[in-house]
């Protein structure tokens, strides 16, 4: 029984860690966005306000996939273990 619970907890933690690999994508994407924004401001310093606003909007939208992963990781760490252990105990009949 302890082994089964241990496997559940360990796999939840592993899953959370693997889910956060998705953080790579938004990192690269936002880096690109900011780099291009810097180039644009360097070329046209007078339009810096508009470029910054648009860049922040784009960053927020690009962040979405990373945040999906974050929510899944948070659920796996804080919610899923209890739920899974309950299901297992019910299945065993204790």
């Amino acid at each position: 029984m302890e082994l089964a619970i241990g496997i559940i907890l360990g796999c939840c933690a592993l899953g959370a860690g693997i889910a956060m690999i998705a953080g790579i994508g938004p990192g690269i994407g936002e880096g690109n966005a900011v780099a291009k924004a810097c180039e644009a401001i360097g070329r046209q310093p007078e339009s810096s306000g508009k470029v910054t606003t648009t860049m922040l909007m784009g960053c927020a939208v690009a962040e979405t996939t990373g945040l999906y992963a974050l929510v899944i990781a948070i659920l796996l760490i804080f919610v899923a273990p209890g739920r899974f252990v309950d299901i297992m105990l019910k299945a065993v009949g204790k």
Binding site: A60, E63, T64, L67, Y68, L70, V71
Partner: peptide
């Protein structure tokens, strides 16, 4: 879904 996750995820990840 994406709007709520974006707002909630950003604030919660900051506090965590």
């Amino acid at each position: 879904v994406s709007m709520s996750f974006r707002h909630y995820g950003n604030i919660l990840s900051g506090s965590v």
